[in-house]
Nucleic acid binder design. Structure first.
Lengths: 141, 141
DNA sequence: ACTATTTTGGTACTAAAGTATGAGTGCTAA
DNA sequence: TTAGCACTCATACTTTAGTACCAAAATAGT
């Protein structure tokens, strides 16, 4: 979020600078208004393309190989055994209720585990947790 | 491809029109040069962002394609282009709302796509869809 | 030009998922 | 023995997800 604010701040700053430059240019008699508008238009388009491409970057995904589980990573994140079990089942697409049944626990307990997992993995949703867990190689592909 | 050419044609046409409009505006005394430049700048930035986002689609394939997507599988399942886009974003852990924002669509539309995806993939939940889609190699790991 | 499909969007629900908070149990290391 | 941690479960919400049904556009293909 801060990053986004920073970027937009930069963009606004750039806009202001260009704006001032354009104004100044208007008083240089050698340049016709045509040229000025064309130039500023080109610059603004470039700026827009830059912004558009920046927006793209957030979509790039890490690709992971189907390899062994990184137990170091698990330790570092402080994931408990139960949490790992729950995470694995969630990654297989089971609902909280189904996970609860498989592990002979109440749905409440699963929700607690899942919430704790989200904090430790720094995610907001289970699908995100699954993707991150696979990227970190803490569950089977 | 024709679509792309057509769109870029439109963009160029729009640029020319705006260009002419901007020139004409210079001779309307009510509008200060400040306003004109600001407006045209904003419009050009918008155009640039549009172009940038269009470029994005082609690029992301290059960046995230180390694991080949099984296009045969995609055809067999009858998944449309839009559905694939939505599926990919869901696999990255985004909520329906977030996907809607990224694709400039309403959440309703995303829900429709997601529901259709579930039928085609024969799953009940998004996490399950993600796991199955990865297993079938129809999205990037 | 005319279909078939895709894409988009809406309303109205129901069902899951997720958050916040509290609390009891049991195990273990200081 | 007690402080800390893992595990369990509950209540009470709020928020997303998902289903069902419908319908208007935009596109693609013939």
């Amino acid at each position: 979020m801060l990053k986004t604010i920073f970027r937009f701040g930069l963009i606004i700053a750039a806009l202001l600078i260009l704006f001032e430059l354009s104004k100044a240019s208007l008083f240089i008699p050698e340049l016709s208004s045509d040229v000025i508008i064309a130039l500023s238009g080109a610059v603004f388009v470039g700026l827009g393309i830059y912004v558009g491409l920046k927006l793209r970057k957030e979509r790039i995904v890490e690709v992971t190989a189907p390899v062994a589980i990184d137990h170091e990573q698990v330790k570092t994140l402080g994931l408990s055994e139960r949490e790992m079990e729950v995470l694995q089942l969630i990654a297989e697409g089971f609902s909280n209720k189904e996970v609860a049944e498989k592990l002979f626990l109440s749905e409440s307990t699963i929700k607690t585990h899942v919430s704790n997992l989200f904090v430790k993995l720094d995610v907001k949703r289970r699908a995100q947790a699954v993707t991150k867990a696979k990227a970190l190689r803490i569950i089977h592909a």
